[in-house]
């Protein structure tokens, strides 16, 4: 059962694959004297997956938080589905957020709620038109999609890290989003689980025609799931392109990064 969107007026711009779903325009962000982002710009359209790689502390996760409106940039703008996330009203930001799914690095499941309640959380708050049976069916569909049938009543503490990420993905997809943001989806997982998560993300992206951004340290994962890769260093994007473009690059930082990962 696919859930029709409750309100998508802000997303008409992203209905076609031509218009960018996410536009990052010269975003800068500092914490005290430390400049974390320094004029970062890129676009992501539907059907595209941009992997952002870089050393720890280069502002990758901050960039994701700016995109979802949890943090405000010092300069520049993050325009998501036509909504400037740092200047829009609370209602417009909420409207844009309903079109976004976010997978946190540690899944950030609500530990007082069961797996079923976690996945149903967005539905309970934004799809009040669903009957209890429709809600349950939707949750079961989502868990089936991420390969977690039969775990409805378990608590987050009772399942493994990889399974928590799957539940997090199911929750991120609950409202049938246009944009999927993934913060280190394979961090802390063994290579087999990482591969499974990569495959799952890839399938979901193809199936839902999502505009995705993946923040990761894992070049193997980035190569698998991303259509483009951006390498960040010192708050700037050093290079952006396909994996082959990165391999051909003469930048020493890029060479170091690739050498380390392979």
């Amino acid at each position: 059962m696919q859930v029709a969107d409750e309100d998508r007026p802000a997303v008409e711009i992203a209905e076609s694959n031509d218009a960018p779903a996410i536009e990052i325009q010269s975003v800068a962000k500092s914490y005290g004297p430390q400049r974390v982002l320094d004029g970062v710009s890129f676009n992501v359209r539907r059907g595209e997956t941009l992997a952002i790689l870089g050393k720890s502390g280069t502002g990758k996760s901050v960039l994701l938080k700016i995109i979802v409106g949890l943090q405000k940039p010092d300069a520049g703008a993050a325009i998501v589905l036509g909504t400037n996330m740092s200047e829009a009203s609370e209602d417009d930001i909420a409207s844009a957020r309903k079109q976004m799914g976010f997978l946190f690095q540690h899944a950030a499941l609500y530990d007082s709620l069961s797996v079923e309640e976690n996945v149903a959380f967005p539905l309970d708050h934004h799809r009040k038109d669903l009957s209890p049976s429709e809600r349950k069916e939707r949750v079961q569909d989502l868990l089936h999609e991420v390969g977690l049938d039969g775990h409805l009543n378990k608590m987050p503490s009772d399942i493994s890290g990889g399974m928590q990420k799957r539940v997090g993905l199911a929750r991120a997809l609950a409202l049938d989003p246009i944009i999927l943001l993934l913060d280190e989806p394979t961090a802390g997982l063994d290579p087999i689980s990482s591969g499974e998560i990569d495959e799952l993300v890839l399938n979901l992206q193809h199936k839902h025609n999502l505009a995705s951004i993946v923040v990761t340290h894992d070049m193997v994962s980035a190569r698998t799931i991303a259509t483009r890769i951006a390498l960040m260093d010192k708050g700037k994007i050093v290079i952006e392109g396909k994996f082959d473009d990165l391999q051909k690059s003469g930048e020493s930082f890029v060479a170091q990064f690739l050498h380390r990962n392979f």
Binding site: R97, Q105, L109, D111, P122
Partner: peptide
């Protein structure tokens, strides 16, 4: 303690990103 635990484990961010 409950809210602090939710805050440091990003559960509160997850709620906000869910447009709640």
């Amino acid at each position: 303690a409950e809210l602090a635990s939710m805050k440091v484990s990003e559960q509160i961010d997850a709620i906000e990103i869910s447009a709640v």
